[in-house]
């Protein structure tokens, strides 16, 4: 069961604003999904190693060799608020 407070906490971590209606709805839906997911706990997983990657590859590193960067104009072309050759953002303080 995931309650309103938890939904709001998680939404804050995920930087998602939710309306009151959305909080209600998510609380119900997430609870039912999580209840379903929790049937995993039927399994004894104590001796099982986790799998993060299914295909084993090795040495997937790159040499320290420069590659071309994007042109400045291209880099900033899609910026919502370009300013002073950079990406402008509002102050962290309200």
């Amino acid at each position: 069961m995931i309650d309103r407070t938890q939904v709001l906490h998680v939404a804050r971590l995920a930087r998602l604003q939710l309306t009151d209606d959305e909080v209600e709805r998510m609380s119900t839906e997430l609870s039912s999904i999580l209840d379903h997911i929790e049937t995993i706990s039927e399994l004894d997983l104590s001796d099982v190693a986790p799998t993060a990657h299914v295909v084993a590859s090795e040495g997937a590193l790159r040499a320290d060799a420069p590659r071309a960067s994007l042109d400045h104009d291209v880099a900033l072309a899609q910026a919502p608020d370009p300013a002073d050759d950079g990406f402008r953002v509002p102050s962290p303080q309200a």
Partner: peptide, 26 residues
Amino acid sequence: ADDLITMYTKTRHDYMGTEVKRRILI
């Protein structure tokens, strides 16, 4: 928005759909 957090939360609220938000929350 005037401040950073509100810019983040409102952007992600206004421009992401319900299913995406649902999965982000899960």
